[in-house]
Design a protein around this nucleic acid. Structure first.
Lengths: 232, 232
DNA sequence: TTTCCACTAAATGTATACAATTATGAAGAA
DNA sequence: TTCTTCATAATTGTATACATTTAGTGGAAA
């Protein structure tokens, strides 16, 4: 039994740890990161052989990744004629924002109900906000973005609505790419924390009306402060 | 030149024709259809080798299909431990409906604006409604379901919001599965046409307020009249 | 010149083969 | 008995090889 508890202690963190992700998942994330960072350009065609060797894997897992990204609208493909990265112009950003508002309002309202019945769940958000603020202090924007997405993912998760959570994963990739094209400076770093804290507090209070307003404002920040992306 | 116009006449319908879909797409549709029809049960584990030979293809395209369906929440998988079909109980149906309402309200409102500026686009909807009514007369429920989804897909398309259209494709698969578990009779056949005609007319008038009400009612029909699915 | 055709090269789609991981079950120890 | 341990089978993950389709090029005929 002594051995058992020891094993439990060792494996406990492993259980909550995500299993090593497959090459397909890695590839999907790498491609999204690449688009976000500008290494892959919107509209650019993807040659499977090239990208596969670039990612040091065979075409099989890469193709699986492309199928995922196609289902999520990150890339577009025509049978036998290849795959290309979707465009991310101003119009598309508007679309992303509109969809986000529609979906996240639902998630926030449902999550607010859950937080009402169990306020201790708020610690999950607090943790994420802390991580975000730490990253913001050091101007590590990619980490800030990831924490930002984690914040919203957590709310979708807490809402208990699996469908919303699934749809969010699609949206999150689009948002991450748009984040990558944002221009940020020290002033933004100061804003990130408080903005999410306001959302957190409104969730804690269950103030749905104010949430609706705050969510829209929060999301609409995306439409400003982005790099000029000519005709894409 | 005479020959050129002839070629144009011949190729024109071909251009609008979807290219032969890959085995991966076929597999994805087959799996969704199978779940909808009850040939594949929610919760059931999928053995790649089995299903691949059942669909008369190798594991490669099947796995691509599974990756797509996983991204859409139709199946769930754990690395190295296999894939299983998601559960479709009452709670999930509620989630689907809630997400649908949030997303489709957006799509309908944006589409209404487009129809205002070009009423001729309404013929697209009229065509689909006719198809739906024909199928309803013959009690061909699967065709009715497909026409129903086409109707909503058309509205997402007309809205011009690519992201909403992408998210709809995910939702559509869930809805199709739920449709499959519905119990329908002659009375339903009489309702399908008028219900969609009302939506069409409200879009034509641009009556957003009434649209919001009608959409919610329309979607919420799903929550009733479904087969009992014990504890799934 | 322009158009058509055939041919080649390149890329995608699919199948098979191999590697790594996990589940299963029997044999042995507490 | 009950729990380990280890070998084996089954299944998933990945790489390689082959098939099919498409894009591009060059030349021949109108």
């Amino acid at each position: 039994m002594a051995k058992n508890t020891q094993i439990a202690a060792v494996t406990a963190p492993v259980l909550s740890m995500a299993r090593a992700q497959s090459l397909a998942e890695q590839a999907a994330n790498a491609i999204v990161t690449g688009i976000s960072a500008g290494a892959l350009m919107p509209g650019q065609r993807i040659i499977e052989t090239e990208l596969a060797s670039l990612l040091k894997m065979s075409r099989v897992p890469l193709r699986e990744a492309l199928k995922i990204l196609e289902a999520q609208g990150i890339v577009e493909s025509v049978p036998h004629r290849g795959t290309r990265i979707a465009m991310f112009g101003d119009v598309r950003v508007d679309h992303i924002c509109a969809a986000r508002i529609a979906l996240e309002r639902l998630a926030f309202v449902e999550a607010a109900l859950v937080y009402q019945s169990d306020a201790s769940l708020l610690t999950g958000l607090d943790q994420i906000i802390l991580t975000m603020e730490r990253a913001a202090e050091r101007l590590e924007w990619i980490e800030v973005s990831k924490a930002d997405l984690s914040f919203h993912r957590e709310i979708c998760r807490i809402s208990g609505n699996d469908i919303v959570a699934t749809l969010w994963e699609t949206l999150a990739r689009h948002v991450f790419i748009v984040f990558g094209h944002e221009i940020r400076d020290e002033r933004d770093a100061k804003v990130m924390g408080p903005q999410h804290r306001r959302l957190r507090d409104l969730l804690a209070k269950g103030d749905v009306a104010k949430l609706h307003v705050e969510i829209e404002e929060h999301i609409m920040r995306l439409r400003r402060q982005r790099q000029v992306t000519p005709h894409v």
